[in-house]
Amino acid sequence: MLPSHNRFPYSAIVSRPDFSWPDNRRLAVHLCLNLEHFAYNTGLGISYSPGLPHPNTYNWGWREYGNRVGVWRIIELCDTLGIPLSVLLNSECYDHCPEVIAALRARGDEILGHGRTNSEHQNDFDEAGERRLIQDVTDAIKAREGRAPEGWLSPGVNPSDATPDLLQEAGYRYMLDWPIDDQPVWIQTRGGRILSVPYPHEVNDIPAIALHHGSAADFADMIIDNFDEMLAQSSRQSLVFGISIHAFLIGQPFRLKHFRRALEHIVGHRDAIWLTTTGAIATHFIGLGMP
């Protein structure tokens, strides 16, 4: 027998009970903004300077551009188009760039847990240490936002074997770590269950641009093509289409131009879709009582 996670059984999307999103919409679309802060000259990250030891000043500065410049361009674009954001927040950003979080808060965007910093991953800790990490992030968000976050994405999308259990025990209702489906999926935990909301592995600027070396135009075309195909498919099953971005990538002017083209295409179909947040998707699905 192959080793198994023992979290959920196989399920064919063509064999499930039918359901709809609010107002009988069939395609839910969410845009996730990763807001991250890295330790200087130590810790993890993606290198764009081959041959140089990593991390280094060049890579730290590349990331920091997103917090200083890129994120403000993205906020402006989403304001113009009326697009809500699901903010995947490193809690260290509260001390590092509080103005950014204040602007997102003023927009009414959803704040999710995304670790303390992407310079550490949950697999770096034993279970007690990971429990403290999750609690640190939860407490920081609750203190600033007035309520605890309901959703979580692990830094580096690299959860430990215990992450679903620890999140459910900490009061989280959903997580984004499992890119397994185009519909929400219940994940069993040792204390109950937690919902997996679809988070994109492919329509995500890190793999598409930083790892697979796609161009800005390629990424915009990917978003548009994925949207058009999923909108057509959603006549058969209600679906979730997620887009994931990082400000240091999409906030670069030459990429923002193409990203704007993709978002304008999506909002041009606003009357046919549910443009929403990951938390609203989780709330609606849980309320349906789906197995």
Rank of each mutant, 00 (worst) to 15 (best):
S91E: 15
V100F: 00
Y94T: 10
C32N: 12
W72L: 02
R63G: 15
P50A: 07
T80P: 10
H96K: 13
N34Y: 09
I134T: 04
W60Y: 14
E76S: 12
F38E: 00
G45L: 01
A106S: 07
D95S: 06
A102G: 08
C97E: 15
T117S: 10
S15V: 12
D109P: 00
A28E: 04
L33N: 06
V29L: 01
Y40P: 02
W72A: 00
P84K: 01
W62C: 05
L77E: 08
D79F: 05
T117N: 09
L81E: 10
G115H: 12
L85W: 02
F38R: 03
R26S: 11
I111G: 02
P17L: 09
I46F: 02
W62A: 00
S119N: 07
V69A: 04
E76V: 03
W72T: 01
S15R: 15
R25M: 01
L52G: 08
L31F: 09
L31P: 00
I74L: 07
L33G: 04
S91A: 15
Y65D: 03
R63L: 14
D124A: 02
G113S: 13
A103P: 14
N41D: 06
I46V: 13
W60V: 09
L133S: 15
V87E: 07
A103M: 15
I46T: 12
D18Q: 06
H114M: 09
V69S: 07
S91Y: 14
H30V: 04
H54C: 02
S86T: 13
L27G: 12
G43A: 04
G70H: 03
D95A: 05
N67R: 07
Y58P: 02
A28L: 06
D79L: 04
L104T: 13
L88W: 13
F38K: 05
T42H: 14
G66P: 11
I74E: 08
I111A: 09
F19L: 12
H30P: 14
N59F: 00
Y65S: 07
E36K: 04
L35M: 11
W72H: 02
I75F: 06
L52Y: 05
D18T: 06
A28K: 08
P17C: 01
W72Y: 06
V29D: 00
E110S: 05
T117Y: 09
A128T: 13
I46E: 08
Y94C: 01
I83C: 09
L88A: 15
I75T: 02
A39I: 10
L85A: 09
L27Q: 09
V71R: 03
A128L: 12
P53Y: 04
G113I: 08
